[in-house]
């Protein structure tokens, strides 16, 4: 196994482009090292991106948008008061990952690129409209989070491409987001269903919404019908029922050791309602 710790993303990209066999980037390593030790994936090339300047920075840009380095950890995000105020849903989704120890290592980018349909931060990022900067042999492009995963364990990144930053839009006024997941226990478990909701209000009326579902299809879903169900409403019971119905209709889950098709489909609707209510309350400036 070859281990590299490049000083720039261009260098990381070149190393990956020229590597043969199985290549992995090493962010927090909470997926990579676990898979290595359990012999699921034994990389031939390991490219540690944590030595690149600025990878742990969390920056609020002049326009209110955020740029997160790809090695910024869950713990660093939760401890960032301003980020937590702007995007509580994204932060709480990341904070659900693993234990205190895992929080000290795990990253948004690792969670996204590991490609699990059940990844907790991904529906929250999709709902929030997050994009990532992708650096490759031909330069850097910006890609919406929902366009990265292509199936369990698979991403749209091509050989030699590495994510170099996470871009979260400006929150703006009268807006809120939330993420909820279902697990049979209270922590240290993997989402059976995950729902991210982000919305904006004009008075009591929802004017913008993005709803994303996790663990109910081969990739995290951005569900337009869910957004339509609540846009223009005051999140009244009828709108919530329509939201739940749209969420359940969008599900294309599997039966597995973690949950049945019927269960996931039903609970996606339940959680969509609950997450929407929280996002709505947050948009109104209420504590939720």
């Amino acid at each position: 196994m070859d281990y590299h710790s490049p000083a720039s993303f261009a260098e990381a990209s070149a190393l990956a482009a020229n590597a043969t066999g199985v290549t992995r980037f090493l962010a927090g390593g909470t997926d990579v090292l676990v898979q290595l030790r359990s012999e699921l994936v034994t990389p031939d090339t390991l490219i540690d991106i944590k030595k690149i300047d600025g990878v742990s920075d969390i920056t609020r840009n002049a326009d209110g948008s955020w740029t997160l380095g790809v090695a910024a950890t869950g713990a660093e995000m939760s401890e960032h008061a301003e980020l937590s105020r702007d995007w509580p849903g994204v932060v709480e989704a990341m904070d659900l990952i693993g234990s205190t120890q895992v929080q000290g290592r795990a990253t948004l980018t690792g969670n996204l690129c590991n490609g699990s349909p059940a990844a907790d931060s991904v529906p929250a990022m999709v709902a929030a409209g997050v994009t990532v900067s992708v650096t490759g042999p031909d330069g850097t492009r910006e890609v919406a989070v929902e366009d990265i995963p292509t199936g369990p364990g698979k991403t749209s990144l091509s050989k030699g491409e590495v994510i170099s930053a996470v871009n979260i839009p400006a929150r703006g006024n009268n807006a809120g987001d939330a993420y909820l997941r279902f697990i049979p226990r209270t922590e240290m478990d993997i989402a059976v269903v995950g729902v991210g909701v982000s919305l904006r209000l004009d008075g009591d009326t929802v004017t913008e919404a993005r709803v994303s579902l996790g663990a109910v299809a081969p990739t995290v879903l951005l569900v337009e019908d869910c957004a339509k169900a609540i846009i223009g409403s005051t999140l009244d019971d009828a709108a919530l029922d329509a939201l739940a119905a749209a969420a359940s209709a969008a599900c294309n889950p599997i039966d597995d050791k973690r949950g049945t098709i019927e269960f996931r489909t039903e609970v996606a609707g339940v959680l969509a309602k609950r997450a929407a209510k929280i996002a709505y309350a947050r948009a109104k400036g209420e504590k939720a």
Partner: peptide, 24 residues
Amino acid sequence: YIYGEDGRLQNSIFLDYRIPVASD
């Protein structure tokens, strides 16, 4: 214990064999 159709154990790690955690 969850067995597949193939008779193999599907949840041989603590992630999927769900013992209670303290907060449960």
